[in-house]
Amino acid sequence: MDSRQQERENLEIELLLEAIFRYYGFDFRDYAPASLRRRIIKARDQEGISTITGLTERLLHNPNYLDRFVQALSVNVTSMFRDPEFFLTFRKKVVPMLRTYPSIQIWNAGCSTGEEAYSLAILLEEEGLYARTRIYATDINEEVLKKAREGIFPLEDMKDYTANYMKAGGEKSFSEYYSANYGNAIMRPGLGKNITFAQHNLVTDGPFNQFQVICCRNVTIYFNKELKNRVHELLYQSLVNFGILGLGSKESIHFTPKQGRYEQVENTISLYRKIG
């Protein structure tokens, strides 16, 4: 591809993003360019359209397609107890602090289909804290929230999740937390009782509560630097003093303006305590 063609592709992507923002209000303009481009090209190919401009036309003239497209651009893949050492450290270092609070507010920002919210619920139940905990699990995308509320996951994933759970310090049999049914794992009723799944857009919405813990893991990797910094401002404002921020294992606070405002809970683990 020569530089002219590349210039044209960049322009087409810019116009597409501008169109869905101006006409529908969904703002992907500050997403990280490389992964966003991959998702746009994939969506274009799935629709059998040859140009990105063609995709823009379909979006503007066929509102029914919008949901599917927004999902293609925004859905984050997630799993239960992803990075077990994160949850192990959470158990050892964060849980003792949470015991000192009469009620615990947790925000799982960018929860996607809910695997992480359920992981936190399981961990806190085992530590005897779940009854006084409320987990607000939010995502931009109503479709994934529907799935999250159902609490039904592919049974084939449970083998991996069981291994993760054990490495994360889980001592029960993980199968106690779900029942198997025709290829599905249905999370035990009651496990979701203190989780509120709700729509929230990190790009355009503001703070809505104060939290002792915020988990926002592998969400801002899809944003460009400027938007990532904006979101970190929002997360910082939403945390109580000495509150805990959990990030993905390769997301560091160091490349954000907030780096001096946190201390790392444990070396090499992406858990940070707000200190000022």
Partner: peptide, 12 residues
């Protein structure tokens, strides 16, 4: 992934 001048990660 590589952007102009810095890295980006994804869990796609």
């Amino acid at each position: 992934l590589v952007e102009k001048g810095y890295f980006a990660l994804s869990i796609d």
